[in-house]
Simulated assay, not measured.
Amino acid sequence: MTETPIDPDEARHELYRIMKTDLPFEQKAAQALELGTRYLGVENGHMTKIDAETDYWKATASTDPIDGAFPPGLILDLGTTYCRRTIAQDEPIALHDVPNQGWEDDPAFEEHGLECYHGTTITVDDDVYGTVCFVSTGPRSDPFGSDETMFAELIARMLEHELERRRTEAQIEQLDNFASTVSHDLRSPLTVIQGWIEATEQSANIDYLRKVYPAVDRMQQLLDDVLAAARSGQVIGTVEPISLETITGTAWDQLETGSHELVVETDAVARADQGRLQAVFENLFRNAVEHGSTSSVSAESVTSGSSSTSSGGLTITVGDIRDANGNPVGFYVEDDGCGIPESDRESIFETGFTTSSLGTGFGLSIVQSIVTAHDWSIDLTESEAGGARFEITNVDFQ
């Protein structure tokens, strides 16, 4: 435990300073937790993500080092933690000396031997997200004071606000992109329709109206894709354990895959909204099979390869990404085509961006929206074969 006391006003000012920085959320959380450990005089602080229905507990941020007992990314059974009791009640739990407070038979103490614990619940959109907790292997000499509990709650509320703000900003940005894309892309088919209607009026030849149908179909396709993209970015539904091997097979079966081949090299179980995760794979696979056999490279063909011909298909591979300890942290989808030009990579996720005259440019936008809604990250790189490789990380695994 640290022995350096911090003045309450100084601690609050430092916390406000941390939260006002432009640092990534994970760094803000780590610095706030470090400040909390100093103020409460404990060994470590953790921000957790919890799903009580599946007995899931994950340290999303932690002051413990990577080789410590509770490092960032650690996954435990919720039933073996004090946090299970924290989320079950309205007030924080403050345990300064677990064995002498009647908790010596608690599964959390029996499993981890932590004699000091202070936990506060975090909620996002009125649902339990997880906790902010501070722990030590040994007891404190004195109970937690009201000022310490208030400061721990302040950290939890500020991290909670940051999570909600980040989600809201992503949704607003997405809606702005949709509005801009729709207003731009609808102009062309509307102009076509208007022109043929005027021609019909001037010539009295109703056969001209047949020329309107392709433009109407184009508008319908665009509106359908906009609706799908808008729904994909909404708050996700039920999160549950999902086998990547199973859901990739289900997504593949929804498509006409022709001579293309799917190879799945993972048995990992991710935690996600099943429908949304299937949509991610369907969009990645669909773009591959639709564009991978042509001689043109499409920015919308996620795993395309212009070197492919109609006589041969792509091999699309799905595998997991693991950290230094061998734990899964994400998954990838890659192909053996020619990849996506570097000049297009910065724009590839923009709503409406496509180099295909038939595409709407919503495929990758939908993928990114679903990834963002899960608080994941997505990056485009190159596969060993020179094709496209999409890496989705910060994924929660069972």
Rank of each mutant, 00 (worst) to 15 (best):
Gln31Tyr: 04
Gln31Ala: 07
Glu34Cys: 09
Gly36Arg: 02
Thr37Trp: 02
Tyr39Ile: 00
Leu40Gly: 06
Gly41His: 11
Val42His: 08
Glu43Trp: 07
Glu43Val: 11
Asn44Phe: 09
Asn44Met: 10
Asn44Gln: 14
His46Gln: 09
Met47Pro: 05
Thr48Ser: 12
Ile50Pro: 10
Ile50Cys: 10
Ala52Ser: 14
Ala52His: 12
Ala52Asp: 14
Glu53Ala: 14
Asp55Pro: 12
Asp55Trp: 09
Tyr56Glu: 09
Trp57Pro: 11
Lys58Ala: 03
Ala59His: 02
Thr60Glu: 12
Thr60Ser: 13
Ala61Gly: 07
Ser62Met: 11
Pro65Asp: 14
Gly68Leu: 13
Ala69His: 01
Phe70Ser: 00
Pro71Ile: 10
Pro71Gln: 14
Pro72Lys: 14
Leu76Tyr: 04
Asp77Asn: 01
Leu78Lys: 11
Gly79Arg: 08
Tyr82Asn: 07
Tyr82Trp: 06
Tyr82Pro: 13
Tyr82Ser: 06
Cys83Pro: 13
Arg85Tyr: 06
Thr86Gly: 11
Thr86Trp: 10
Ala88Phe: 00
Gln89Asp: 05
Gln89Val: 14
Gln89Tyr: 03
Asp90Met: 04
Glu91Met: 05
Pro92Ala: 15
Ile93Asn: 12
Ala94Arg: 04
Ala94Trp: 02
His96Asn: 10
His96Lys: 11
Asp97Phe: 10
Asp97Ile: 11
Val98Thr: 11
Gly102Leu: 06
Gly102Phe: 08
Gly102Trp: 08
Trp103His: 07
Glu104Trp: 14
Pro107Phe: 04
Ala108Tyr: 03
His112Met: 04
His112Glu: 04
His112Ser: 03
Leu114Ala: 07
Leu114Ile: 11
Glu115Asp: 12
Cys116Ile: 00
Tyr117Phe: 12
His118Ala: 13
His118Pro: 04
Gly119Gln: 07
Thr120Trp: 03
Val124Met: 14
Asp125Gly: 10
Asp126Thr: 15
Asp126His: 15
Asp127Arg: 15
Val128Lys: 10
Val128Trp: 04
Val128Ala: 04
Val128Leu: 01
Tyr129Arg: 12
Thr131Cys: 10
Thr131Gly: 14
Val132Gln: 08
Val132Ser: 07
Phe134Glu: 03
Val135Thr: 01
Val135Tyr: 04
Ser136Leu: 06
Ser136His: 07
Thr137Tyr: 05
Pro139Cys: 13
Pro139Thr: 01
Pro139Ile: 06
Pro139Val: 02
Ser141Tyr: 13
Ser141Asp: 15
Asp142Ser: 14
Phe144Pro: 06
Gly145Arg: 05
Ser146His: 06
Asp147His: 00
Asp147Ala: 01
Asp147Val: 00
Glu148His: 13
Met150His: 07
Met150Lys: 13
Phe151His: 03
Ala152Tyr: 00
Glu153Ile: 00
Glu153Phe: 00
Glu153Pro: 00
Ala156Glu: 03
Arg157Gly: 08
Met158Gln: 08
Leu159Phe: 09
Glu160Cys: 09
His161Asp: 12
His161Cys: 10
